[in-house]
């Protein structure tokens, strides 16, 4: 199963050229049942990544373009009176899918944002007193534009915290971009993705993540990192939830590398994506300065 997962990774690398690390992080995030925040300028391939992920994992996929006038109902769905049957019936919104691409999440009003974030956290939606469970697995890829633009409302810290990882795709290398221009078959390639993993298989893999061994000294290292952030005057302290998220991501990363134990290198590999947006919400994902500083300053005796 893991082999298939790795094959998907290989295929994704053929669609998104020159970004193996980010693809791996995205898959890691998915495996760890976390949500992913992609921070990039428009046109960097965020949508392509989300779409490719959904396709290769046989997940249902919906995309919502967030605007300032988007209402929570547009996202979650609403109860409509059916004049024919004289009954109220629930029309599920785009959130009822396995993979939701929330494009430009910072353009929406805080109200809409928090509706989505609540759904992400609770894995269910409550409308008019009725609770509707979201499909499993439920995975949100939100994107946001890093430049402060008028009419946007940045996600508050508490809500950023809901995203397991924040990743920036970044500009491709010249060679990768040349390849992109030369072939110009990006869209068609997306359809070539055939190696799919069933939802059951994906969930089975997700269930394996908690079983990955994290040795005692490793937990102490994570605590060292978190503790260090709490003593640093220039950054926000990492919450216990952040520590949990870090461990979860590291386990998932280890699993991706076909190991049943987490190493310090795993922790360090996922740390910038997991911690940077929690340490400094105003920072940019492309410049993971604070997490790099923490990694450098925390002695690692493992």
């Amino acid at each position: 199963m893991l082999q298939q997962f790795n094959a998907i990774e290989t295929h994704l690398n053929q669609v998104i050229l020159g970004k193996p690390q980010q693809i791996k992080l995205a898959l890691c995030c998915l495996l760890a049942k976390g949500h992913l925040l992609l921070e990039d300028l428009p046109g960097m391939g965020k949508t392509t990544l989300a779409h490719a992920l959904a396709n290769s994992l046989s997940l249902s996929y919906r995309r919502v373009q967030f605007t300032s006038d988007l209402l929570p109902g547009d996202l979650l769905g609403m109860t409509i009176y059916d004049t024919r049957s004289h009954q109220f019936s629930f029309k599920p919104g785009p959130v009822f899918s396995h993979l939701l691409l929330a494009d430009e999440i910072n353009r929406a009003s805080p109200k809409t944002q928090s509706a989505l974030l609540e759904a992400m956290e609770e894995q269910q939606v409550s409308i008019d007193g009725e609770t509707h469970a979201l499909p499993k697995p439920f995975f949100v890829i939100a994107t946001q534009n890093p430049l402060d633009q008028s009419g946007t409302s940045a996600l508050p810290e508490s809500q950023l915290d809901r995203f397991l990882m924040r990743v920036s795709l970044g500009f491709p290398s010249r060679a990768a971009e040349f390849e992109l221009l030369d072939s110009d078959r990006g869209q068609s390639r997306l359809e070539l993705l055939s190696d799919t993993l069933s939802i059951e298989q994906l969930m089975h893999l997700q269930q394996q993540v908690p079983n990955v061994t994290a040795a005692e000294p490793l937990l102490h290292y994570i605590l060292d990192l978190v503790g260090h952030s709490r003593q640093h005057p220039d950054m926000l302290p990492l919450s216990p939830r952040a520590a949990k998220a870090l461990l979860q991501a590291a386990k998932s990363w280890a699993l991706l590398h076909q190991r049943n134990y987490v190493t310090a290198e795993d922790v360090q590999a996922v740390f910038p994506s997991v911690a940077e947006h929690r340490l400094a919400p105003k920072s940019h994902a492309a410049d993971a300065r604070w997490s790099a500083l923490l990694l450098k300053e925390t002695p690692c005796q493992l």
Binding site: T263, A264, E265, Q268, L295, K296, T298, C300, L302
Partner: peptide, 9 residues
């Protein structure tokens, strides 16, 4: 080794 570098690395 640099302080923060894991032994394995």
């Amino acid at each position: 080794k640099p302080e923060g570098m894991p032994v394995s690395q």
